[in-house]
């Protein structure tokens, strides 16, 4: 994965590939779940857009990407040395 860290990956890369593959598979299944006959979205006035197809999927994905990128930018603003407060 990323270049972060010090030692070797603690899980073998092949296994990681399998896990990631499985993740993508159930991601697909989760979206298709909306096609189930028992799927009856809850109607809330003003929140119709929530019930558009795959809304939670892309909203979750986008939220996380934006969250992390924003946080990474925020780091420039707020990050200090570990002993920042201990110095005078």
């Amino acid at each position: 994965m990323s270049d972060h860290g010090h030692g070797p990956p603690s899980v073998a890369p092949e296994k990681v590939k399998v896990i990631v593959g499985f993740l993508f598979f159930i991601c697909a299944v989760a979206v298709l779940g909306e096609l189930l006959p028992s799927f009856h979205p809850h109607e809330h006035a003003g929140l119709e857009f929530v019930n558009t197809f795959g809304f939670h999927a892309w909203y979750g994905f986008l939220s996380c990407v934006l969250l992390v990128l924003a946080a990474a930018q925020m780091r420039k603003l707020v990050m200090r040395d570990e002993d920042y407060y201990d110095r005078d």
Binding site: A30, Y59, A71, A72, E82
Partner: peptide
């Protein structure tokens, strides 16, 4: 959906190398 795609986003960010590394720091 919400949770799995968040996980997918984590994988995606790690793959792209965009994920902020763990750094020794104090965040104000």
């Amino acid at each position: 959906q919400l949770l799995l795609y968040s996980a997918a986003a984590f994988v995606f960010l790690q793959k792209m190398g965009w994920y902020p590394p763990e750094l020794k720091s104090t965040n104000v």
